[in-house]
Amino acid sequence: MAVTKYTEEHEWVRVEGDVATVGITQYAQEQLGDVVFVEVPAVGRKVAKGEACAVVESVKAASDIYAPVAGEIVEGNAALADSPGDVNAEPTGKGWFFKLKLADKAELDGLMDEAGYEAFVKSLG
């Protein structure tokens, strides 16, 4: 059973075994507006928790995507190069950014669960 966790930077992390898939939330894509460019990290790159490792550009601005937990990149979503709009249309589905192999599963405990994230978004007004 996959477990989904969330960060305060509005990323979701879906964990299956020791691999985490990372994307941005519905709230984040709404805030960004139309996504026109995505840059995903190269396979094999080792990223620290909180390290900027992907970029999402809307018409208005560029935003960094941070590694929610430490690990090694095992796949980037290559399809986003040609269809960056997937991030808007299906932020938690086809619009995923990258997969990483977890360095320390215990880091997941520091992230929010769905109820916690919903409360966090509500607190933003």
Partner: peptide, 12 residues
């Protein structure tokens, strides 16, 4: 207004 609900691409 920076954009309306349809978004910048559709408005453009």
């Amino acid at each position: 207004p920076v954009q309306y609900p349809t978004g910048i691409l559709a408005e453009h």
